[in-house]
């Protein structure tokens, strides 16, 4: 992140796994300024920070929010929507591991249907995943993108694209969590890639009012070459209780999402 922003980034981090990962005071492991903030307020802090940089003539610095799905899709949604509606000049990166991992794998609104969490312990989650990127597109902001840790070049390019745009920019980064999704650490990239290959996660960009499906997903959509969703869920313990009905729901969710994006894509 520090290298992508050429040393000009300032990171705002609400309560999430990263609050712990960066280490304990008086040391920090990140070579860039970081502001840790209460859960619901990252986008608001970033907006204020950006405005201060503007009045102080430091507009070449970039303010970037790095937040989990709980801090984005749930408790942070109001301040996120507020900042997006005002077109605050910040980049908001939601690293989406589809549950409250830092507090011990509780369900979030970004948890997919059928997934086990510690608050959906028997049946799995009964509601579909909230689509935050689509909500951001509805705010008509200059840039929205989805990305995956399995496609680092795609993510890096999207980050670079977003750095050159002014106004509110949003990137949703699909980030499997071995502990919470119940698979071996070493399979992290494979699971993330399988999400894209089964169409459970679609890579795209929304820019200048137009959706463009990104290369890895575009090929799969054009050729209709998606792998069966079963291949994605069987490698993760969290989907162990998925029955036929839930699986049908996952297929419907995926197909509707592809249909929706296809309609809007150029």
């Amino acid at each position: 992140m520090s290298s992508a922003t050429d040393g000009k980034g300032i990171l705002v981090v609400p309560a999430c796994c990263t609050s712990v990962v960066v280490g304990t005071a008086p040391k920090t492991s990140m070579r860039m300024p970081i502001v840790h903030v209460p859960f619901a307020s990252a986008a608001a802090v970033a907006s204020g920070l950006r405005e201060a940089l503007l009045v102080r003539g430091l507009e070449d610095k970039q303010v970037i929010v790095w937040a989990g799905d709980g801090g984005t899709a749930d408790i942070g949604m109001a301040s996120l929507s507020g900042a997006a509606e005002k077109n605050a000049d910040i980049i908001y990166i939601m690293y989406d591991n589809e549950a409250y991992m830092n507090t011990g794998i509780q369900r979030s609104s970004s948890t997919p249907r059928g997934a086990w969490t510690t608050t959906t312990p028997i049946m799995g989650k009964t509601e579909p995943k909230k689509d935050v990127s689509r909500i951001m597109i509805s705010h008509d902001v200059p840039y929205v993108a989805t990305a995956s840790i399995a496609y680092p070049h795609d993510f890096y390019n999207k980050l670079q694209t977003s750095l050159k745009i002014r106004g509110f920019r949003f990137i949703q980064l699909h980030s499997p969590c071995p502990v919470g999704w119940r698979f071996d650490d070493s399979l992290t990239v494979d699971v993330a890639r399988m999400a894209v290959e089964t169409g459970m996660w679609i890579l795209y960009e929304y820019k200048n009012g137009v959706i463009e499906i990104s290369n890895p997903s575009r090929y799969l959509i054009q050729q209709n070459k998606f792998k069966p969703i079963e291949e994605y869920i069987k490698i993760q313990g969290r989907f162990a209780s998925v029955d036929e009905n839930t699986l049908k729901g996952l297929y419907e969710y995926r197909n509707r999402n592809i249909e929706f994006l296809n309609k809007l894509a150029k």
Binding site: V35, A40, S47, G48, L49, A52, R56
Partner: peptide
Amino acid sequence: IIKVESEHSALAAVYGAAIAGA
């Protein structure tokens, strides 16, 4: 002036500004 969507965000935005020197 930042016209935020709640008081929680109002003070949060003031913090962001103050911590950056304004």
